[in-house]
Design a protein around this nucleic acid. Structure first.
Lengths: 233, 233, 233, 233
DNA sequence: TATGAATGAGAGTTCATTCAT
DNA sequence: AATGAATGAACTCTCATTCAT
């Protein structure tokens, strides 16, 4: 009775609207962060989305939740790349193609890099990596079975490799957006089979998850731990 | 009679205090930045040093000047490593030793990494690289002459390689401080001679300088270049 | 059904609050500036208005924008006085009445005087003078046609005269708020027709605008143009 | 006995040095204030004088004492002009000459104007005006006796007139440094004999002293009344 | 539910003034 | 007596977050 009787669908359209706004916000955030980094204010993001700040807070508890959502988008893409790579015949080509596709996305998006390099965001990270492990591990296993990759390589290694190349893009910025392509072959050489043993073991999945989550946690403004705000006035 | 006639009067005694404070500030900054990154406030740095904020501003025009001072320290070390490496007989061992020594320093110090990764600070960078180019180029030339390194590698490549490994340390944090050692061999494999040609040319020195300076400038205060915020009337 | 169909929807109801606060801020600023001059901090103004600093900054980009808003109020009054004066029969009486009315407003309000004397604020000034030129010029023309005023007087002269009398009020403060009345006749005598030629031409409108704007700009932040302070290393 | 016997001149040479520094500081302050107004920092003044800040504080208890000293210099000049004017034959020409000479000094010196317009400084003012009253009153009396000036004019009026013209220079700045000459005749016309009675009596000397002192006192930073500084650290 | 006004802690920076040398 | 390093309060301005409408 609260809703007037002529409202056609009581809650579904609401949801659709809400979902739409969520997307609008994430898109806006990617644009804004891509331009000005994670330092940009939520106000700016909300207005770029054509919404009020309050609406942003209805969807994301805080700025880092939003960063997390962006991350999920990015991970979706990487997972998609990995899954697509599994359909490529030549395992080594598949792997290279996967790395290239992943990097191409970061190359144009500073905000994405900052998120991926973990400049911010807390917990959510864990779930994220869980999604990556499967397809990436399979990709690696295939390559290793084909003899094109040294046996020691594990799924976390690919994550690290991607991040290292992100760093290159981050340094190069818009002025040399393809510079990472110079360093990819360097790393690929290292991934190949005939090299001597690596001196340090790879991180375990668990460890990797902990570390990256931790890395991000360190970055999150101390304000999270700040004393409860005094009631206004 | 106050000043003994044979005193060469090399410098003012007062300076001793000031110099001490300058060191205190740099040390405090390394500690604080190491813990909380460059986001930490100058207030915190000053107080960690047991000094007032104003004193920090007497020594450094702003936070990024301070970061610059830390950077210079770090660069001093890297240059020293490079120069020492030039005394090592085997060129390849010299190069590897140089990279290892450089990374070891960063490994324990997040603030240093952030500074080196260029998260901040503008101009001063140029002078810095000028100091690095000489010894590093020589190091590379020796290795290339010995046939142990592909000819395409240039001095900027080593800078990028160091930064990529810094990223690894940055992700790993204090929990896996040696993780970079896993990825160094990967990159070394890429540096060796018998690999196919790289798809992208190296940055020229000039370009590299511009980019890193630019990278930092972007970080310093995006707000300066931010679009004029719409102001309600 | 939520919004009644016959509502012309002239403006958002929320605005009422915001508009109220804007007025509160301007009123508070007039009070505070009246007591302590433009040196008072925006913090103080905001708190006098019973609002937070942030609110002040939502409405005014900075202190000088606020001063500008006060100025606009003041100019509104002066323009109103000038327009009213144009309805008075005797041109000379109209002019005198205009000056008296203008001064009476300033007399009680130091902040207003400081703003008008241009102790601060930049550009907006121009628009202001544009609004004054019309009615004041007409006032002058009428008086000159009646033979009561020397022909050389121009609209800028009245602006300067008002400012000179503001200075008197500024010096006299609350203790001799009517002192300006002693000096008005002195100046009026000078404005009358039978005196010898003035040794210096009046400022052109353009020139006047430039100067006052400039005057203010000089005040805003000398620091911006200040010679780079020598910084100890 | 306190001074060692071989000190040639126990205190006189000291004095000379101190007096020299005092002059250096006042000169530097006039230069600096002339360029950047009273907002300039004492540090800048001291360094312009080639001295340390500490030395400035040995001579002046605070910034406003220094402004007071500048004021005294300015008053010295005005008194000198007045005294010189008394030697001029024609009383009216003497008066005009006095005003012109007084204004010429202010015209080039923003700091002096700020001081004179009383933007700052406290008590000392009183003594100052005492010095002006004598010669200026004599100047006026002569002119009045000659029939060239209305009888109501008193010494304070000239002070106000000078300040009004200072305002003109303040507005005009360096761009129209002679603009005050346009308004001097206007005021002179008012000072002449045949005009109708002034509606408000002149300030008495005492009153004038009180007001100007008060005006300045209002401006002095509230910090003077601030709670005693907490002992450092 | 969406909005955007309000809030206030906090960051960077300056400068009058003090004090050790 | 002179110096300039040190101090910290004060100021302007920003922005994450809350809340009235």
């Amino acid at each position: 009775m609260t809703a007037s009787p002529d409202t056609p669908a009581p809650c579904r359209p609401m949801r659709k609207d809400a979902a739409r706004n969520r997307e609008l916000l994430i898109d806006a955030a990617r644009e804004v962060f891509a331009q000005r980094g994670l330092e940009a204010s939520l106000d700016d993001v909300a207005h770029r989305a054509g919404l009020g700040v309050g609406t942003a807070y209805r969807h994301f508890a805080n700025k880092y939740e939003l960063a997390g959502a962006i991350l999920e988008h990015a991970v979706d893409e990487i997972v998609a790349h990995a899954e697509h790579a599994l359909t490529v015949e030549d395992p080594w080509q598949a792997l290279v193609g996967f790395l290239e596709a992943s990097l191409e996305a970061q190359t144009v998006d500073r905000g994405l890099r900052e998120v991926l390099l973990g400049v911010h965001d807390p917990e959510r990270m864990q779930q994220v990596h869980d999604r990556l492990v499967g397809p990436i591990s399979e990709l690696i296993r295939r390559t290793q079975r084909s003899g094109a990759m040294r046996a020691e390589i594990e799924s976390t290694d690919l994550g690290i490799v991607i991040m290292m190349l992100c760093t290159v893009s981050d340094i190069a910025g818009d002025d040399a957006p393809q510079l990472w392509r110079r360093y990819l072959p360097l790393l690929l050489a290292g991934l190949q089979a005939d090299e001597p043993a690596l001196p340090v073991p790879a991180l375990s999945e668990t460890r990797f998850r902990e570390l990256t989550a931790d890395h991000k946690r360190r970055m999150v403004r101390a304000s999270a731990a700040a004393p409860a705000r005094v009631r206004p006035r």
